[in-house]
Amino acid sequence: MSKPAILIYDLGGCEGCPLSIMRVYPQLINIANVYTKCLGKVDLDREYDYAVVTGPICINSPEHVEELKKIRKNSRVLIAYGSCASVGGIILYARGGQEPRPEHRVYAPISRVVRVDYAIPGCPPAPQMLISLLNCIRRGKGYFLDLFRAVALNPKLSGFDLMDEVVLNGLCVGCGACVLSCPTNALQMIDNRPDLIPEKCIRCGTCTVRCPRFSQILIQRSRLLQKASSLSRISGV
């Protein structure tokens, strides 16, 4: 069996995500042919089995938007990798106005611009993540795969959403998964419930997909969304 071709491409993130991928490069080359700017030229006009896009999309940069669309068109599976690409992450706070390009105002998860197959939060995800994910995609099913697909459809995920949707909504069971999933320690257990320290949250989204309640809600919602969109297609709405 020939190895799949995998493109790793950064759209203007901090480079932390592609570098975390570089760290498993010695393993990755055993399961895929890797194309990345870290090692040489990449060609966006050819086709790839997987495209792993890191970094957020700047809605005000037509060049980047075009690049992203091209990548979508030329790849079989598109993976939004890391918090910036999948849920927006720290860069959601951007407000533009900075020289020399004050017009770069709005940043978004890439699923705002193109259809994304799987979205993986993490700032940055641990290197092993990509290997596991590729293995899992090959097998084609399972709860976590559903979850990462759901993140692509509902990218509004942060510690604030965890509070709103789960904790303040009375659905939290106090398992502590979220507390152990925050890279900045923005969550702490108070009386068996997590509480958010707002100034520490960088909106990486990790806590939300680690929460058993939130992940379940996400998967269910994405099913409804998909159903609704296929219905509207049938009825021509």
Binding site: S20, P125, A126, P127, S132, F144, S181, P183, T206, V209
Partner: peptide, 9 residues
């Protein structure tokens, strides 16, 4: 999830 999909370093 931590074991299979390490989202955090």
């Amino acid at each position: 999830q931590v074991k299979m999909f390490p989202l955090m370093e």
